[in-house]
């Protein structure tokens, strides 16, 4: 019997599916793959959005954003965004397999 590879339909990018609802200072994020909902500070959710876009291209955007909008130094911005990234990984909001 010929080997057939399983269709990879399940291997969708999580971030491209995440649903964001911003409410002022807060944001509720729904992950349709896990079915979980998360309440995040709006700033963190913005970074999450940028991280997810970064995965598809420009990975410096979260850092640029933090520096421009929140007057962080480069080091601060890197530290901040990588801490968030770690946290999101553990929440299943970004896929650990991208490492």
């Amino acid at each position: 019997m010929p080997l057939r590879v399983i269709a990879s339909t399940q291997q969708k990018n999580i971030p491209s599916l995440l649903v964001f609802r911003f409410w002022g200072e807060e944001c509720v994020v729904y992950n349709p793959l896990s079915g979980d909902t998360h309440l995040l500070p709006a700033l963190h959710a913005e970074i999450l959005q940028l991280i997810t876009e970064g995965i598809r291209g420009d990975s410096d955007r979260p850092i640029d954003h933090l520096m421009a909008e929140y007057a962080m130094s480069y080091e601060e911005a890197v530290e901040f965004s990588s801490a968030l990234y770690k946290n999101y990984k553990s929440l299943g909001l970004v896929d650990p397999s991208w490492n």
Binding site: V19, W23, G24, E26, C27, V28, Y30, G35, L39
Partner: peptide, 22 residues
């Protein structure tokens, strides 16, 4: 009550949120 928190509380109180999903 902030709308973010209200959303979270309603979701917690919804019996079939996991069924209806997105």
């Amino acid at each position: 009550l902030s709308k973010g928190r209200a959303s979270m509380s309603l979701i917690e109180n919804a019996f079939n949120f996991n069924i209806l999903g997105h």
